[in-house]
Nucleic acid binder design. Structure first.
Lengths: 169, 169
DNA sequence: TTATTTTACGTGACAAGTCACATAATCTTT
DNA sequence: AAAGATTATGTGACTTGTCACGTAAAATAA
């Protein structure tokens, strides 16, 4: 290996080191790894997608629910849920009816088949949550969630990157 | 509002409360909010996608780099980068050549135009990182990264959800 | 030296996610 | 009561990401 190649590899390694402290990148990667784990666990028990699993879980815990309510609970966009519901209806897992007090809403409820699929899948997902609870104490979790709260405030607060800030930079 | 409706709303609210302490969901939402912020900032300075920005940034800091090296630095899959490179070549931002020591590799380097686009965009992205540094001290960051390390170990460690665990449950 | 295994990267299919938009329904203002 | 503004949901287009696969090249084993 030549000196130029050594330089190139050194730069690569240095770059990797600096990115280990890049909170944006690290959070992204951790969240995606988490998602991959969930997909793998769901796959081991059937063919539910993550969105389908979330819908079933929310409905099992608190249904019937509107699309917007589920989106809010899951901190996701209503579009994703809206797009998932028809196939779940087709599979017989959920049924919808127009809201009586607000005819814009679509009230989604579990069917018996949906309840059954939920129960067949919930064991592994409960185990996942229980395993996480052994890895992180309640105090750890408080710290973690507090840091996440602060991070979310940062990314959603326009003031942190306002013209005034630019003026002083 | 009837009693049944009250019950339904109460269940929804209770469900929201429990999900506030769901670390999986919270981490996911925070990472996605961060990504959205990045996209918004990039959009304010041009039309770079997140993947394009990441490629430019890595190359500016440590280029030339292979697809696998960039994927490793960014903690992403090589497929995403491979798919992005041709358009960036078309735009004149990067150029590639086959590696001399390993002809399987594709060495990607910034062009002068790419350097220029990088520099036009890097100010706002640097400001973003600086703003994050004012929101989180080095000590905060150490704690946060440590918790993320532990979370990543959890989601990647098969032992936490092994048959032995299932046997004892 | 040959055979086998592993690796780099390009490609395709699909899921998860964002944003814009449209339509209908509801709410607020005039 | 009518007009204007806001909201719920469905849809489409696009990005970001995963996984599987194929091919060529490199590494390892026989």
């Amino acid at each position: 290996m030549t000196t130029a190649q050594n330089d190139r590899v050194d730069r690569y390694k240095a770059r990797c080191l600096t990115q280990e402290r890049n909170l944006f990148g690290r959070l992204q990667a951790a969240a995606l790894a988490s998602r991959t784990q969930a997909k793998r666990l769901l796959k081991s028990k059937g063919d539910l997608s993550i969105t389908e699993w979330r819908v079933l879980w929310d409905l099992a815990e608190a249904g019937p629910l509107t699309v917007t309510e589920m989106a809010s609970i899951q901190r996701t966009d209503h579009a994703l849920i809206s797009r998932t519901i028809p196939a779940m209806i087709e599979k017989g897992y959920v049924a919808t009816k127009t809201g009586t007090t607000d005819r814009r809403t679509s009230l989604v409820a579990l069917t018996a088949a949906g309840r059954s699929v939920f129960e067949g899948t919930s064991v592994i997902m409960s185990q996942r949550r229980a395993a996480l609870s052994t890895a992180f104490s309640e105090a750890d979790l408080d710290v973690f969630l507090g840091l996440i709260d602060r991070f979310e405030q940062f990314v959603e607060d326009p003031k942190s990157l306002s013209p005034a800030t630019e003026g002083t930079a």
